[in-house]
Design a protein around this nucleic acid. Structure first.
Lengths: 111, 111
DNA sequence: TGGTTGTACAACCGACTGGTTGTATACTGC
DNA sequence: GCAGTATACAACCAGTCGGTTGTACAACCA
């Protein structure tokens, strides 16, 4: 488990259930039970997912003991986006495909 | 290990060494040994990282057996970016902070 | 008071991770 | 053919993951 925040963010996003939880939270805060309802997993599993998201700073929890609704905190997503930004030129301009093509030409594979 | 491509992409990005490898590859293709040089890990470890990146479709390898330089393939990054896109409004407009604020007001915590 | 609900904590499981070392293969150059 | 180089494969390790079940606690409701 890495120490840098960006790794935590990407790791938190690397699970479809957690991304679905974030999508749900984008609509507004929700309790653990509400979040667990649409998924075929136990409430405890969702609670664990929330803990991962919390560690990544992607959600905050209310303090009340009985109900601790989770809320989306998008700032780390902004940081992930900023990292991706550096590579945007590559796919935006099909730079990688261009590079592939040039490479193939150089190799004489195609012309 | 999830089956959806997006999870593979985010998982591949959730490691500083792999992100550094991508950054290096953004400058041009490189062999395993070249990629391993700046890192305090073994060549084999880098080879493993490359395999993870390959599985995520983020790099392609040449075919030659003796030297199989890796090249960046940015398309999956574009898909990750497209996912983040949905949440861009949240941090771009400080929407989450606004939501926090509204919530606090509602709670009477602050006015 | 007691029952129900919402949540957390702990233990366990099988699978994967990131790293190592050791061994093997394949090409290059002498 | 032989030495060196580049890479891969396999086994192993400790640690983490995503999931489960069981237990416990705190807060509401009757």
């Amino acid at each position: 488990m890495p120490i840098d925040p960006l790794s935590h963010t990407f790791a938190a996003l690397a699970d479809p259930t957690r991304r679905a939880i974030l999508a749900r939270l984008a609509l507004g805060e929700a309790t653990v039970s509400e979040l667990a309802a649409p998924f075929p997993v136990s409430v405890q599993a969702v609670s664990k997912h929330l803990k991962v998201l919390e560690r990544a700073g992607l959600v905050t929890r209310a303090k009340a003991a009985q109900q601790r609704p989770a809320r989306l905190r998008a700032q780390p997503l902004g940081e992930a986006d900023a990292w991706l930004e550096h590579y945007r030129a590559f796919w935006a301009t099909r730079f990688d495909q261009l590079a592939d093509h040039l490479h193939d030409i150089q190799k004489g594979t195609v012309r």
